[in-house]
Design a protein around this nucleic acid. Structure first.
Lengths: 334, 334
DNA sequence: TTGTATGCGTTATCAG
DNA sequence: CTGATAACGCATACAA
């Protein structure tokens, strides 16, 4: 690899002058500057960001921690983050935790060892010392779509309680009384909030909230199938509507429902959450609660980068408003 | 940040001893080693990988270049890559090119400046000096699901011609004679291969290959809608089957078809490519050509990492066999 | 077994 | 405007 020294030698100046020229310093003779640039070009010089990072104390990279990049909601967030990061010359280091505390911790440590300038975390859990491990580390960070116990951390979320209420009220409005809820992981704040709001709405309407119709499962399609099967198996005990904490999960429910010969929405109404792009396909037409995932990624990355440049940007705590999108998987209770 | 020196001072040894102890060198007294480890622990020492990278000449990161992480095919690949990389302590730096040559080039340069140890590229184009920019750089790399002009580069692909043949022959077997093809970007090898094989099969069966039924579009849902609309608009000139170069595109086709009041598969058969997880949803049931995306990512990452450790692993040129998955979007021509 | 000195490629400080 | 020189944090060759 050709270094700054090689360029210096080629041009016949000192390394410092080359460094200055290359970083566009104004205090360097225009003519020598152009000679340096030219030489750098023809020698194929590429600045070693590692060395630069070492002395500048900033790596020019941010870490992105998601449960599973395969989930469209998170790949959308990743896309948003990546767009902003790229535009500002930052690299994005990706890692998947599968919502496992141990992996989350170990990746966070890896990121810190790599001296990422900032962290975007979409997989914060409640039962894990994430907060301390983040906050104490002195690395800038922001949570996306997750909350932590600590109320002071920056985040970008949508109002999960409001979103959940929207979904359940929609179902109630349609005349459903046997409404089930399949949540994500229990140790995730958004899961709990959606669960709480679900129970709250049922309560407000004097609707019985049966324990078998209330499950913390997970954010995967498999979890949806599993939980869905469990709830739909016994005909007499079957709910007429299922609210799944996540579109992917809802798709799993759709799958078992279909397998059990149930028609959606005639026999079963299904509501999802996220409004991933596949939810709007004509064949799917999933009623769901929309979250602007790409935008959330952009907002988070935007704030993070700004707070890296600027010492004193106030911590961002942005709560976006979710939106009910009624499509064809919900219908009046029969 | 606490450095190796701080630990050294705390324990009362030299920095080099700490360095040795921390990297598990055997030539250091067991007792001092444990004292060092303990001190490092309690001081919250985290090795600065940047500094380490600088001296070792290896950053412990690999770059992953995809057209769009939002496309399930690529997020699957990313997942496979990430799994292997993480397991080996490597970081994954992600970037999205949207299949644009300029972005591809600039990200590749960014990666090189960041001194990634290796590169996994899923967005190689034919009309761009990527190959040179890669090969000449001396950074190890491997192409996934893309080919380049240079026959000697390492890659993991599936046999695109074979896959395309599978799809078109399936359609022909069903009695279709008016078969259209919507390809990906024209400057991508896999696009061309699929197009070629499509024409080849039609030829072999003496089926007319109309120009209006042959389009290079793109790998996005929007491209599918656009191209699909164009082909389906005029009733008299309508194909009875469309083979889309990609599931996402096929979903777009499904969307316009539905919008135009066409029933699939009664009025129109549709075949996709990739077998993304949403293709198997009961509501979708897309007939498609399966590629093992996660596995491809794993294979590529596995080889890349091996070739980083080991100087002389032979270049991998792995061609996986695609598989026809018949579901419900194809039916005999009426 | 440990310490000293040196270098990885940059940037920054301080003279000139 | 330019050039030494000293860091940045770590690893290692060489001494001790």
């Amino acid at each position: 690899m050709v270094t700054i020294k090689d360029v210096a030698q080629a041009v016949g100046v000192s390394a410092s002058t080359v460094s200055r020229a290359l970083s566009g310093s104004s205090l360097v003779n225009e003519e020598t500057k152009s000679r340096i640039l030219e030489a750098a070009q023809s020698l194929g010089y590429e600045r070693n960001e590692l060395a630069r990072a070492l002395v500048k104390g900033s790596s020019g990279a941010i870490g992105l921690v998601v449960p599973d990049i395969t989930n469209p909601f998170f790949s959308d967030i990743a896309r948003g983050v990546s767009d902003i990061a790229d535009r500002n010359g930052y690299g994005v280091i990706l890692s998947n935790t599968d919502d496992r505390a141990d992996r989350e911790l170990s990746y966070l440590r890896l990121m810190r060892r790599k001296r990422v300038d900032g962290l975007i975390v979409c997989s914060a859990r409640l039962d894990t010392p994430l907060d301390e491990s983040l906050t104490s580390a002195g690395t800038a960070f922001i949570l996306v779509s997750r909350l932590s116990i600590d109320p002071d951390v920056p985040y970008v979320i949508t109002d999960d309680r409001a979103g959940s209420r929207l979904a359940v009220e929609h179902l109630v409005d349609l005349g459903h009384r046997r409404i089930a809820f399949i949540g994500g992981p229990e140790n995730v704040q958004s899961s709990r909030d959606r669960m709480d709001a679900y129970r709250e709405v049922l309560n407000e309407h004097g609707i019985e909230s049966r324990e078998e119709w209330r499950l913390f499962a997970g954010f995967t399609q498999g979890a949806g199938r599993e939980a869905g099967r469990q709830m739909l198996l016994h005909e007499s005990e079957r709910p007429t509507a299922i609210f799944a904490a996540n579109d992917v999960t809802a798709l799993g429910v759709l799958e078992v429902a279909e397998g059990l010969g149930l028609r959606v929405p005639e026999d079963l109404s299904v509501v999802g959450y996220d409004d991933i792009s596949y939810a709007s396909l004509p064949r799917i037409q999933l009623t769901t609660i929309a979250q602007p995932a790409i935008e959330m990624g952009q907002i988070a990355a935007g704030w993070l980068l700004r707070s890296l440049e600027d010492e004193d940007v106030p911590p961002l705590q942005r709560i976006l408003t979710p939106r009910l999108v009624v499509r064809s998987t919900t219908a009046p209770a029969s």
